[in-house]
Design a protein around this nucleic acid. Sequence first.
DNA 1: AAATAAAAATATAATCATTACAAAAGAGAA
DNA 2: TTCTCTTTTGTAATGATTATATTTTTATTT
Lengths: 139, 139
Amino acid sequence: MSVNNIEEFLKQHNIKPSYQRLKIYDYLIKYRNHPTVDDIYQELVDEIPTLSKTTVYNTLKLFLEKRIIQLITIEENETRYDADTSVHGHFKCEECGKVYDIWLDITGMKIEGLEKFRVSESHVYFKGTCEKCLINNKN
Amino acid sequence: MSVNNIEEFLKQHNIKPSYQRLKIYDYLIKYRNHPTVDDIYQELVDEIPTLSKTTVYNTLKLFLEKRIIQLITIEENETRYDADTSVHGHFKCEECGKVYDIWLDITGMKIEGLEKFRVSESHVYFKGTCEKCLINNKN
DNA sequence: AAATAAAAATATAATCATTACAAAAGAGAA
DNA sequence: TTCTCTTTTGTAATGATTATATTTTTATTT
């Protein structure tokens, strides 16, 4: 998505496209790395020296309210964000810390106990060791 | 599970069954309410006036290492614990805050991208509104 | 039973992510 | 330009968790 498109996209979701908001959303879709607040801040502060961490927090909170990003809470002390709001899974490697996207179809899953609830969010995640780290461990 | 059984259970998992540990594990299986550290502390401090929150933290950490409980991280700022270590789902009601157990079978789910990873944990959770709150909302 | 050593519990302080708040900067309208 | 509203920023406050040192308990040995 180009910067112009991001501007349009934010407007469509009733978000005024300030420079900071553009840059933060741009970061999310450019890297798709499920960043923490600090990841985003550290990357952008070079380009926007006046950037405040509060702005990153505020912006992500706004994006969440407008439902253009989702929260990833795999680790208790580590909040991450994802611009892909579709239902999909995540895998966090306990060795290298990387978070991978996992394609999955939860509609094919046998579930009991949800019938009478209204579900607004579904999340699936895994932990373990990724292929790269498995190979490295053999050395 | 009776107190004697809990004692045996802890021993079997190489955990010395101190009074505090017995009580904390007893709380978990008695209420099955996916408590926070504070939930446990507040309940037990009446019975054990000298109880320290650090002890609750230490004990839960030990239980996690010995894999007799699991961590639930639905909400970013709210760590919960579950003595049921089998793979099952959770549903958190955004109105009343209650966390429900959801029976599910993830082996029947179509997944792509995990084939070459070693998976040690699988988690599924949902958010929304529970039946009780849906009914209450109609009034 | 006393002495000793090891483990566990406790109290307190430190850390760190997040939030609250107030002030400054920026954008748009009259 | 002036006024108003929104956004950003800096700083302080909050609160959960962890680190550290001390005390208590438990187990072991003599």
